[in-house]
Nucleic acid binder design. Structure first.
Lengths: 253, 253
DNA sequence: TCCCGAATTGAACGAACGCTCAAGCTCTTG
DNA sequence: CAAGAGCTTGAGCGTTCGTTCAATTCGGGA
């Protein structure tokens, strides 16, 4: 049927763009892997760039259910939700053998200076992300010092995530990711110390993995998927094959 | 002369790779802008990928004098050196109208999963960076709590930088950068509070620009260079033209 | 002065690129 | 069943890609 083809193209394109970049992905490769003829692709998308835009729109659309909503389901405590969100990216790095981090962030630097329309979609994605994190930080109420700049803190969290993903992918090791996140945790812990309020959300609840102390550092032979899985339910897609329906987009973003 | 041509190719390639990505840069464009024939390029570099590797090697080589050394010259206080280093990137974002962030970080995500040799060079670059920052944090001595994980903190600083650059470029605004860095500053301030020692390096020295309070947020009409310049001496290169000598590499990395 | 290797020239290569389109097929609807 | 819109087919368009190479020029030592 019709929309199935469109979704299959979109899904395959997203995967290949993420793996090889936009310029590094040939339209012919998308056609081959999606098992589609060129005419069909150009029936739905007027150009390769329009396909990129559609992929990014899909990411924006899927951010809420697949990530932000999932983080809220994974944790009730507003501050823990921040770390639950980071944990989702962590699991994604591990199960993919450091091939997949944040697909939008990965593409952003390549396209930022070349495709204005695409850049604005990345911008919208980032603003949704930080906006929701900021709302969690607001919900944390007086557990953060009264003068806390929640907007700056949410922006900072996104920076830490994107930089942590970058370093993890480059070094094919989760350690830089854990180290970076541990320092974000430390910042929130120290901030909480400045208030006189409950410290129930302190890091010794052990929710987020923190490296540092026990340095069992090791590298993964690039390409092989790691064994450890973060959040049991959210981890891997059923069987690899890009099925093209909306449900698959949820599970694999 | 011979090495002049080689350097000119290298310099132009670096600029175009940074602006358009690796796959987004045509060899023909490098030839045109460097005013060189294809035979000359392939006399020095066996392939386009080898040229990429050479560019990355140059970045690794130039990291010390152009960035790490410059930060040490800009500040004596070891902790201020961290922020002086970030300030260099900030200035680069501003003078380029958000076109140029960290060239190595920009390329890293595109090439991480495709060119193993190139990926290792990016890794080496990152390790030099964090290694030096870590040494500064060690030099800070008891101004940081005794249990401080200096390695993790240096890794965190690089994450903050890369993520901040990414967000600034995508939004064509310096605000996300300043917000991110302000939170890194806050982390170090709060850490210092945990010790009983001198607080001479506290943020109220006003060295690093901190947004947050006065929100004079604005965007730049993408492409135009901003007026504000960070560190007066380090700012812009003399006259745009890529001269190809080692001196130019220093000034523009 | 001659020589030889390094450096440069630039036309041309085959492959791959993004994309087009006339032609057929397949559903839905009246 | 007829009609027509929606979707698919796939050969092939012109262009650009990274790369090659025989021929030529250049510069420094013998």
């Amino acid at each position: 049927m019709a929309s199935d083809t469109r979704n299959r193209i979109l899904s395959v394109a997203a995967r290949l763009f993420e793996a090889n970049g936009f310029e590094g992905t040939a339209v012919a490769a998308i056609l081959r892997e999606a098992d589609v003829n060129s005419g069909s692709l150009y029936h739905f998308f007027p150009s390769k760039e329009a396909l990129l835009v559609a992929v990014l729109e899909k990411y924006v659309e899927v951010l809420e259910p697949a990530l932000l909503g999932a983080a809220e389901r994974a944790a009730d405590d507003p501050i823990e939700r921040v770390f639950a969100l980071l944990e989702l990216y962590r699991g994604r790095l591990l199960v993919s053998g450091f091939a997949r981090g944040c697909p939008v962030g990965d593409l952003s630097l390549e396209i930022a200076s070349r495709f204005p329309e695409a850049r604005h979609l990345v911008d919208a994605y980032f603003e949704s992300w930080t906006g929701r994190v900021e709302s969690w930080l607001v919900a944390a109420g007086d557990r953060l010092p009264s003068g806390t700049d929640r907007h700056a803190l949410a922006t900072h969290a996104l920076s830490v995530l994107q930089g942590a993903v970058m370093q993890a992918r480059v070094s094919t090791s989760i350690d830089p990711f854990d180290d970076s996140v541990s320092q974000l945790r430390l910042l929130l812990d120290l901030s909480a110390d400045e208030t006189g309020v409950s410290v129930a959300f302190r890091s010794d609840t052990g929710r987020t993995p923190v490296a540092g102390a026990a340095r069992t550092r090791q590298r993964v032979p690039s390409g092989a998927a790691a064994s450890a899985v973060a959040t049991p339910g959210t981890a891997a897609s059923p069987a690899g094959e890009a099925s093209g329906d909306d449900d698959a987009w949820w599970r694999a973003w």
